[in-house]
């Protein structure tokens, strides 16, 4: 990218996010022995690979000015489909993987169509999608299905050494590939730019002759696909399918994207920022684990606090840029 390097309001949230991550990592390192290690850092990726993938999809949705509340449920549904196809239908992973990926893609596509063609609010459509996907999980099986399959075990347990005795998992590779692809799509394809334009002003996008409807549908399809891919990674991680998997994950995802500097009103933000956002959520958990005495629910309170901080920060930035605008703008 050949963008300017000055720190204008466009980069401020992202800079704040990266700064926050560094501060938190330093804080952990100074406070806890064993915190400052490459493996602790890599574990952030290993434990949150699936969250990175969902957050990437969600970034596109939020960039366009929409919201997707169905991601957590689609992860659960994907894990359920994968588990039941593998264990009950005894299909080979070569079939199970594409079929599972199709789950979220089709759901996302349908939600996108409803949003575009009938001009429904994304919030309510994806809410329905959320119910539907969870419900479908239970239709498959109310209980958890444990996966006992060579391929899945391989995906779960393979450690890829990265030198110095440190390692990452296959899921991390997948997640990073998704991130790279998403950055490319966001900045070097027409679709990516259309997403930003749509988030900037839907009316302008229409008048500039951009394919608004197609873009909208594609955005939710991409988010659905990412959720399903995340669902597979989650399944590798848990080695089971269960309707209660990833409960409330949509909130963590939205939080990660917002903390990552993407404007909730759309139009500004970076995929890379969302990755840092996920890492911040991860590091909060790690700190709490290292602290030992702190209860895990502090995670939620901390996320809520950060969310507030970033939302207010966004309001300030938007309000400031608006006042400079309207002083000269038309009536």
């Amino acid at each position: 990218m050949t963008k300017g390097f000055q720190l204008d309001s466009k980069h401020l949230p992202l800079a704040a996010t990266i700064g926050l991550f560094i501060v938190m990592f330093l804080f952990g390192s100074l406070r806890y022995t064993g915190f400052f290690s490459t493996q602790v850092f890599l574990n952030l990726f290993i434990d949150n690979a699936f969250l990175i993938v969902v957050a990437v999809g969600m970034t596109f949705v939020i960039l366009s000015g929409g919201i997707d509340l169905s991601v957590g449920s689609i992860i659960a549904l994907t894990s359920m489909v994968a588990a039941s196809l593998t264990m009950n239908a005894q299909l080979s992973p070569a079939l199970v993987i594409p079929l599972s990926l199709l789950v979220g893609t089709v759901l996302g596509f349908s939600m996108g169509c409803l949003i575009h063609y009938f001009n429904l609010q994304p919030f309510i459509v994806t809410l329905a999608g959320m119910f539907l996907a969870r419900g479908l999980c239970y239709l498959i099986n109310v209980e958890s299905i444990t996966i006992n399959n060579e391929f899945f075990s391989f995906m779960a347990s393979t450690r890829i050494p990265v030198g110095g005795g440190n390692f990452i998992s296959i899921s991390v590779i997948i997640a990073l590939l998704v991130v790279v692809a998403a950055i490319f799509v966001a900045h070097f394809t027409k679709f990516g730019r259309n997403v930003y334009a749509l988030g900037g002003s839907e009316q302008s996008a229409l008048l500039m002759g951009l394919p608004v409807g197609k873009t909208k549908i594609l955005i939710y399809t991409v988010s659905g696909f990412c959720s399903s891919l995340a669902g597979l990674i989650f399944t590798f991680y848990m080695l089971s399918g269960y309707g209660l998997h990833a409960n409330g994950l949509e909130l963590d995802t939205i939080a990660a994207v917002v903390i990552g500097g993407t404007l909730l009103t759309g139009g500004a933000g970076y995929v890379a920022g969302s990755v840092v956002g996920v890492l911040i959520l991860g590091i909060i958990q790690t700190v709490i684990v290292f602290e030992g005495t702190l209860s895990s629910w502090w995670t939620k309170i901390a996320i809520g606090g950060l969310l507030l901080l970033f939302i207010v920060l966004q309001r300030v930035i938007v309000a400031r840029s608006k006042t400079t605008q309207t002083s000269i703008a038309s009536h």
Partner: peptide
Amino acid sequence: LILMVAGRGIAQL
């Protein structure tokens, strides 16, 4: 949304 996320944490606290 903020309260939705943080509130449950506070309840558990």
